Simulated assay, not measured.
Amino acid sequence: MSVYSFFIFDRHTECIYSKRWTTQQPGRPTTGVANDSVPPSARKAMKDADDAKLIFGTVFSLRRMVRQLGGADDSFLSYRTGEYKLHYFETPTQLKFVMLTDPRAGNMRTVLHQIWATLFVEYVVKSPLAPTEHRGGKGVGNELFEIGLERFMEVVFAPQQ
Score class of each variant (00 low, 15 high):
1 M>P: 14
2 S>P: 06
4 Y>D: 13
5 S>R: 04
8 I>G: 06
9 F>W: 10
9 F>L: 04
10 D>T: 11
13 T>G: 09
17 Y>P: 15
17 Y>K: 14
18 S>R: 13
20 R>I: 00
22 T>G: 02
23 T>V: 01
25 Q>D: 06
30 T>W: 06
30 T>M: 11
31 T>F: 06
31 T>V: 06
35 N>I: 13
37 S>I: 14
37 S>P: 07
39 P>E: 02
39 P>Q: 06
44 K>L: 15
46 M>V: 12
46 M>G: 01
49 A>H: 09
54 L>P: 05
56 F>V: 03
56 F>S: 02
58 T>A: 08
60 F>R: 13
60 F>P: 00
64 R>F: 06
64 R>T: 12
67 R>G: 04
67 R>S: 06
70 G>P: 00
78 S>D: 05
83 E>V: 09
84 Y>K: 04
84 Y>C: 09
87 H>W: 06
88 Y>E: 07
88 Y>G: 03
89 F>Q: 00
91 T>N: 00
94 Q>H: 13
100 L>M: 15
106 G>W: 02
108 M>D: 07
108 M>Y: 03
111 V>E: 06
111 V>M: 03
112 L>A: 01
113 H>W: 08
117 A>V: 04
118 T>W: 00
119 L>K: 07
120 F>A: 02
120 F>N: 09
128 P>Q: 05
136 G>D: 13
138 K>L: 13
141 G>C: 11
145 F>P: 14
145 F>E: 09
147 I>K: 15
148 G>Y: 08
151 R>P: 05
152 F>T: 06
154 E>P: 05
159 P>N: 03
161 Q>K: 06
161 Q>G: 03
